[in-house]
Amino acid sequence: MHEASLVLAMCEEIKRLAQKERARKVISIVVSFGEFSGIEEEAFRFAFEALKKGLPLFEGARLFIEKVPAHFRCPWCGRSYRPLEGPNCPSCQVPGLPAGGGELEIKKVEFLLEEENV
């Protein structure tokens, strides 16, 4: 269950950004997980719901999870292909390089800003 560590790390990153932006609430968060990232979506949501109870900044925040499909890139011709097509490039038959699928990213955060100098 490393999802809890990841949720903590995510909240730390967002907290820092909130300070910089002078935000007082997080409205929504969009994260993206690669197909081979090893994240279990339900465990991540569960950990987020549990952790946000102790963090006023995140009260009522909504979490959206996007999935990124894995892909390999051919080191010769640059072609991008899915792991289902096999380990080797369909054109050149050379083993591909893992190019996408490990993502663990915060894509977007929507903040409610402090009420001042409007």
């Binding site: 990841l6 790390a9 995510m10 730390e12 990153e13 950004l17 932006e21 935000a23 409205i27 994260v31 663990l104 990213e105 915060i106 894509k107 977007k108 955060v109 929507e110 903040f111 409610l112 800003l113 009420e115 409007v118």
Partner: peptide, 25 residues
């Protein structure tokens, strides 16, 4: 300005593309 009640609440959306484990990295 908030579109519901006219209060002075402001929203801001930030596109990040930041790694969750950026600090560890």
């Amino acid at each position: 300005m908030c579109e519901h009640c006219g209060c002075q609440e402001r929203k801001k959306e930030i596109a990040l593309e930041k790694k969750i484990l950026a600090q560890n990295e």
